[in-house]
């Protein structure tokens, strides 16, 4: 397993957002974490990257216990997060955002790799020297993903990347995720767009109120009634 999560706990004061969650992601796997609003998906990803302190459990990445490491230290071990709401630096130009993506690198291939991102996302190349604040939602998402790729991660965690995108752009986004996966990247995808997520992922984990209530192969989950219940059935709040 590339990533192993062992009974992870996240607490905010009295809110217990993630409860003793355990799962693993293999080298070449794409896994999706599903669940309704407030289920604890963002808390899980933030704790895995080290942005939010975990209050119990262990995180093992590539055989190393990274539970106590800072987010930059985890990034240098090739674990990365594209956060909820994209979060690009709008006062920097598109190019500067990409340069920041390679901040943890000191090799001489950075310029070549940035050009690679421009080839992959021609829209970004056309807006190279513009402030990132002028980008559309879809372009911002490309920048957020492209920036993260420049850190050369082995596992990329995406927190609701399709949020706020038009159906056409959502389609393209999932194509991108599929091709990243084919290129050998392990992916941990948090989504509300259940159907699309289960199409690209091989396995799914359903979270409810901080617990994994259902896990299984993606095609088994696609027609699962319990999954529908996780979204619509409970009066959880």
């Amino acid at each position: 397993m590339l990533l192993e999560v062992e009974s992870l706990d996240v607490r905010y004061g009295r809110t217990h957002a993630v409860k003793a969650l355990s799962f693993g992601v293999a080298q070449d796997e794409c896994i999706t974490v599903l669940g309704s609003n407030g289920a604890g998906k963002t808390s899980l990803l933030r704790a895995l990257q080290g942005l939010t302190p975990s209050s119990g459990g262990r995180v093992i990445f590539n055989g190393e216990d990274i539970t106590k490491l800072s987010p930059p230290q985890r990034l240098r071990r090739r674990l990365s997060l594209v956060p909820e709401g994209r979060q690009i630096a709008i006062s920097l130009t598109v190019h500067e955002n990409l340069q920041m993506g390679a901040y943890c690198r000191s090799d001489s291939d950075v310029a070549r790799d940035i050009n690679g991102i421009y080839e992959r996302f021609p829209n970004l190349g056309a807006r190279r020297d513009m402030q990132a604040s002028v980008l559309s939602g879809g372009e911002q998402q490309m920048l957020a993903i492209g920036r993260t790729l420049l850190a050369r991660p082995r596992l990329i965690m995406l927190d609701e990347p399709s949020l706020g995108l038009s159906p056409l752009l959502v389609e393209r986004l999932f194509e991108l995720i599929t091709s990243l996966h084919l290129e050998g990247l392990a992916i941990l995808l948090v989504e509300q767009n259940t159907q699309m997520a289960l199409e690209v992922a091989s396995r799914g984990i359903v979270m409810e109120l901080g617990r994994a209530t259902l896990t299984g192969a993606a095609h088994d989950l696609q027609n699962n009634e319990q999954l529908a219940a996780a979204y619509f059935g409970h009066s959880s709040h």
């Binding site: 930059p72 990365s80 630096a89 920041m100 993506g101």
Partner: peptide, 12 residues
């Protein structure tokens, strides 16, 4: 602009 973004990108 946002220390959290900086941290995600590898800035200690």
């Amino acid at each position: 602009e946002n220390p959290e973004i900086a941290s995600l990108l590898g800035v200690e």
